[in-house]
Design a protein around this nucleic acid. Structure first.
Length: 99
DNA sequence: AGGGTGACCCGCT
DNA sequence: CAGCGGGCCACCC
């Protein structure tokens, strides 16, 4: 039921993130009307880990890049390319995009 | 069908 | 200010 929609919504929210900005799992979870599913959001991206979605723009609320199935190290490099300055593996909150 | 894990978050000590 | 524990949802074995 909602399982499929949930994953789809996660991708949609992820795609909504403009280039040069990042969002947190919690923000996405709230955007899909499931504020408690922040963990499931990460799970969806991890399970799918498709390059078809800019999941590298999704980071933790603490500003930490969190993890990346393709390589956390690579994720940071991608964000830097987008224009996000990563300091010590952390992204300033001003780069956080709010829905 | 049940249990365990994971790219997390929030609260308390 | 930093560290620890519990809780949440979805997916895999």
């Amino acid at each position: 039921m909602a399982t499929r929609s949930f994953t789809e919504k996660v991708y949609s929210a992820c795609a909504r993130i403009p280039k040069g900005k990042v969002s947190t799992y919690s923000r996405i979870a709230r955007a899909i009307k499931k504020p408690k599913s922040a963990r499931a959001v990460g799970n969806a991206l991890n399970k799918n880990r498709s390059k078809s979605v800019p999941c590298h723009r999704v980071i933790r609320s603490d500003g930490d890049v969190g993890g990346f199935a393709h390589g956390t190290r690579k994720k940071i490099a991608m964000l830097r390319r987008e224009g996000v300055e990563i300091k010590n593996g952390k992204a300033p909150k001003r780069f956080l995009f709010t829905f």
